[in-house]
Design a protein around this nucleic acid. Sequence first.
RNA 1: GUCCUCGUAGCUCAGCAGGAUAGAGCACCAGAUUCCUAAUCUGGGGGUCGCAGGUUCGAAUCCUGCCGGGGACGCCA
Length: 615
Amino acid sequence: MTARSRPYPAGQPRFARDRAATSWYDRCTTMNVFNQFREKIQAALQDLAGRQGWPDGLPFDRVTVEPPRDPSHGDIATNAAMLLAKPVGSNPRAIAGPLAEALAALPEVAAAEVAGPGFINLRLAPDVWRAEVSAILATSTAYGNSTLGAGRRVNVEYVSANPTGPLHAAHARGAVFGDALASLLEKAGHAVTREYYINDAGAQVETLARSAHLRYREALGEDIGAIPEGHYPGEYLKEVGQAIAASDGDKWVGRPETEWLEVFRSRAVELMVADIKRDLLDMGIRFDTFSSERALVEVGAVQRALDTLEQRGLVYTGVLEPPKGKVPEDWEPRPQLLFKASEFGDDVDRPLKKSDGSWTYFANDIAYHLDKFLRGSPELIDVLGADHGGYVKRMKAAVTAITGGEGSLDVKLCQLVHLFDGGKPVRMSKRAGTFVTLRDVIDAVGPDVVRFIMLTRRNDQTLDFDYQKVREQSRDNPVFYVQYAHARATSVIRHAGEALPGRDLSDAALAKVPLASLTDPDELGLIKVLAGWPRLVESAAEAHEPHRVAFYLGEVAAAFHGLWNKGKEEARLRFILADDAETTLARLALVRATATVIASGLAVIGVQPVEELRE
RNA sequence: GUCCUCGUAGCUCAGCAGGAUAGAGCACCAGAUUCCUAAUCUGGGGGUCGCAGGUUCGAAUCCUGCCGGGGACGCCA
């Protein structure tokens, strides 16, 4: 598990569809098994409505088609009868009966029955499922691609760490989450911009400049002693000091700060950003756009954004109430420039200018979000640390206000990562300079492990990351479990090459193999899990929840390993049967389909599927 | 004090666009195990989905209020 991960290739089909007033289902043109049957059910309902004289305007678009939780209920369940009972003026069972009858007549349907409060459970003909195996092999890792996004542009901003030092372990989560979300949205048919916001305008980068100047003097041989309070102590700044010393010599020694601050700020930021980019690249994360806060301010974007708000009457000068509870010691009532955030759902109005007359971070951020919108993305997503929770309402309010309601913002908050080493917590202190860098983590376990593990929890749950555990080769380690399934599948194909010499075992060939011998419930069960991939892509993309991909891959792996284990007990169920080439080929098609779906899912997460797992 | 977020099995966590008897792994208990790739496998017990209301044919899921953990709360970013 060492190879570089790569982002999912772009190039999904893009459709310009009107999304207004259409349901989730109807925005989606992709024909996975469930969407196909939804159309068939709707057609049957139209037909039934005509024959039974139902009223017009029935909510057929609210009909859902989904796999039942309990597999013994069948393959597909629909709520149509329960949903229509009221508007039709009948009871669910009276509707369900004829509908089930109509559906049972379809060649793809093996059985249809009414159950529970009025569900219709469909059991599909095995050939419907078998055809899905061929479809997977024919589409390869593009299987699961959807047109749900209809080519709509989405801007995903993530990481955006301050350029005042190297990325540390905590940044890994937002980095992986954002990147996987971006890939997921691409797979679901969106046009995605991956963006990093460089906070190079505040007081922090001036501290960085001063700290770099100290290191610069140190590099020229001066004894600077202990790093004074108010400076960054990190060793990483020595390189910056040395670089400037090498290029500029001693020209900035003994000069007033006003002369060198600007130079040191931009040089230091430049070097820090280069560092950050390199770390990210080593995790396979690359951005389309790096936006500079300073540049935005310098071209007057902040002023322009606030002018826009002012024209809409959303800016005024006023005095804020002191915050309840913990009041800052130096609090004093003061008139300041405020944005009417409270008109857009925020609790209070928010300041736009600091006491020294410069813009607040929030003011700059308004301009920045407007900039993202004006560059063509009506849908904005910010991936932030959970400590920014208090910032969400005001930023959403600002986006609504500044875009005149045409832009939308979703903020995904990532909770903390707790590092452990063999069960012992790894203590980190920024002040003492003992924080663990992202580089440390990558060097220790590799990018693929970092990426996968970061998605084994919902983004809003804290996550434990144990150096030892994530490298274990056991069932407990989800990275291993999924990778092993893929490696195992590859191994089967390798063995099959020996058992069936001269046979074409390429995916293209396997896609055309007859599959009628796939009859075991566990074989069909595995196919059903695989056939759920397109549906999962769509729901995970819609919810902006890439962790679902990681959990889904665990299910695929479990179903595959289960089948494998069954072959241990019953030799007839092994993938390779020396005396039965046809069954073997059908099973190899299933094995390759499994590997393909795993690879397709890992591509979203940005993890390279491995061919074998030998150490 | 206000806002955000989480609360599901002993533990760690899933739970899909609201669906039927709420799931997985670990741990625990009972069995199997010279196996196509080795990093075991099969079965079993375990739950007032924090509490109380509401919406709905139907709620772990949506809404409101409490309780508990975490986070945030002008001039940090």
